[in-house]
């Protein structure tokens, strides 16, 4: 029971509506950019920053003879991992995988009032997502919020132009206004929002369906984010091998917190254990001291 997004890279046309809708919804200012031709295309801004929560990277997959095989556009943003490394690394619980009734809702959100600016989250994230507001005197960590506010406090719309909506329209509006801004605005439906399990089924269905009908857009038989780092909420389908389009394929399937969890779990025991040992040693040495004092007093 957790919200997720399936990104079908075979549908993305690199238009960057998602970038603009994100800035619009989050009231983020534009950056001062220059044309750099990054990715052989039009990438801008060149990185995720405190003002840019999502961006499209451009990739040209070129064959051996220099011929262009594929031109691919990839949306980058926080992956909203099921077990986020950032939340685990954060000493003050400023990052939180939101839960309700024991299961996660999807978003990994950030509490600026708890943050102490240590930036461990930036070091921990395998996807290099959290960024700091380097240009501010009091900087915060910034990243995609998975439109947590749209999901949990959607705009209520019961009438437009002064006229009430039909029941069918009301349902349609309600679903749309709870959808993350980027997903909703995507012109080609490359982004699909829903329950993670249902999206995984849909992803597998698409892979199988396309294999059946043939053609040149066969998906790589892998759903990126299904298992990587223990699973992420943002998952990808691609017809080009993931390593050719800027995805890390060396992350493994263990959730990052699980690497440190045994050590951290051991801390209370270790503290108590070592404390007990030191306490015992102290008691023993105290007793030793008392015994020799007694001996001294007896002699006199």
């Amino acid at each position: 029971m957790s919200k997720a997004v399936l990104v079908d890279l075979t549908r993305c046309i690199g238009c960057r509506a998602c970038q603009v809708a994100c800035k619009e919804w989050n009231r983020l200012p534009a950056e001062n950019t220059r044309f750099r031709g990054l990715g052989g295309g039009y990438e801008n801004p060149p990185a995720l920053t405190g003002k840019t929560f999502t961006r499209i990277t451009f990739h040209e997959v070129v064959g051996a003879n220099g011929a262009l095989e594929r031109s691919v556009f990839v949306k980058r943003q926080c992956m909203h991992c099921l077990e986020p490394a950032c939340a685990s690394a954060c000493p003050v619980t400023a990052l939180e995988k939101v839960k309700a009734n024991g299961s996660s809702l999807g978003p990994v959100i950030y509490h600026p009032d708890r943050c102490m600016g240590c930036r461990y989250c930036m070091l921990a994230c395998p996807f290099n997502v959290p960024t700091l507001q380097w240009d501010r005197v009091v900087p915060y960590i910034r990243k995609c919020t998975f439109c947590f506010d749209r999901q949990t406090r959607p705009i209520a719309c019961t009438e437009v132009n002064g006229t009430g909506l039909s029941d069918e329209s009301r349902g349609r509006y309600s679903a749309a206004l709870q959808t993350p801004a980027c997903v909703k605005t995507c012109p080609t439906g490359a982004l699909q929002f829903g329950e993670r399990e249902a999206l995984l089924l849909e992803a597998r269905r698409r892979i199988a369906e396309r294999r059946k009908t043939g053609g040149g857009w066969q998906y790589v038989d892998h759903i990126y984010g299904e298992k990587e780092v223990g699973g992420t909420s943002w998952m990808y389908l691609s017809s080009v091998p993931f390593e050719k389009i800027g995805f890390r394929t060396d992350l493994g399937e263990r959730p990052y917190p699980s690497y440190t969890l045994p050590a951290i779990k051991a801390v209370p025991g270790a503290v108590l254990g070592v404390g007990a040992v030191l306490g015992a040693a102290y008691w023993l040495s105290q007793r030793k001291g008392e015994k020799s004092e007694k001996k001294e007093t007896a002699k006199v």
Partner: peptide, 10 residues
């Protein structure tokens, strides 16, 4: 500005 950011120059 949000559009000029995407395509700033000729």
């Amino acid at each position: 500005p949000w559009l000029l950011e995407l395509q700033p120059q000729l």
